[in-house]
């Protein structure tokens, strides 16, 4: 808040001039909120795109998985690729399965728990990847208005100090300082509102995707458990054969 700006009645009230007239604390708050807004939108765009990709990849994988293709073959094609989502879970489970069977696991129950753990781990990693950075949106959504309010309070405070110095109480003297102080709150809200909306949307999307992957993991675990039972029974058949 510059006293010179206060003294002039015909102060420019465009947003840019309001910003330039503000004190350094208020400026800092505004710049920080602007940066937060930029980062928020970067996260929103990034997450929207990555969720879209994840969804389509899940669809594709499910299609492939349920196409009746041999699991061994699928594992062979996915193993040398970096996979995400269901693919990663599938690969983790198959790896554990292969390791155990190649060494000739004796206890099918232990194998089952190992595979489940491997899949849980893969699922948690995937979920972490999905939900990463959503916390920032939550922070901006809740703290943004407060940060803006802080800038406003500081701005109005200095504005009133300047008014007290100028010994004039006309609205023309008071108004510019308050307008520029309120700009900080406006920017805070501008950053916080999209952040809150996006956080709700993205976290629910992530929950849905996580649910789908969890479902797949359970289903695959059931399939593998059936397979283990079959494998345990098979040696007897083989032996019989």
């Amino acid at each position: 808040m510059e006293t010179t700006a206060l003294a002039e009645p015909g102060v420019q009230l465009s947003i840019w001039s309001l910003f330039m007239q503000a004190g350094w604390v208020v400026k800092l708050v505004m710049i920080g909120l602007l940066g937060a807004s930029i980062w928020t939108w970067a996260i929103i765009i990034d997450k929207t795109i990555s969720y879209q990709r994840m969804r389509s990849s899940l669809n594709r994988f499910e299609q492939v998985f349920w196409s009746g293709q041999s699991l061994e073959e699928l594992y062979r094609t996915l193993a040398d690729r970096t996979t995400s989502g269901m693919g990663a879970i599938f690969v983790a489970a198959m790896r554990e399965w292969k390791k155990s069977f190649e060494k000739g696991a004796k206890s099918p129950l232990a194998l089952q728990t190992r595979i489940d753990k491997a899949m849980d781990l893969a699922l948690t990693r995937e979920m972490e990847r999905l939900e990463g950075r959503l916390g920032f949106l939550a922070t901006v959504g809740s703290a943004g208005p407060f940060i803006g309010l802080f800038g406003t309070v500081i701005g109005i405070m200095t504005s009133f100090q300047a008014i007290a110095g100028s010994k004039s109480t006309s609205l023309a003297v008071v108004a510019p300082g308050i307008a520029e102080a309120l700009l900080a709150t406006a920017i805070g809200l501008l950053a916080a509102i999209p952040a809150v909306i996006a956080y709700n949307k993205l976290s629910s999307d992530a929950g849905k995707l996580g649910g789908r992957m969890e479902g797949f993991a359970d289903e695959f675990s059931a399939i593998l458990s059936r397979q283990i039972d079959e494998k345990v029974a098979q040696p007897q058949h083989r032996a019989a054969a």
């Binding site: 930029i38 980062w39 939108w41 970067a42 795109i49």
Partner: peptide, 13 residues
């Protein structure tokens, strides 16, 4: 993330 950030910066600008 880069794509998101650049688009965000462009949008804000």
């Amino acid at each position: 993330m880069k794509a998101g950030l650049t688009t965000s910066v462009i949008l804000h600008a």
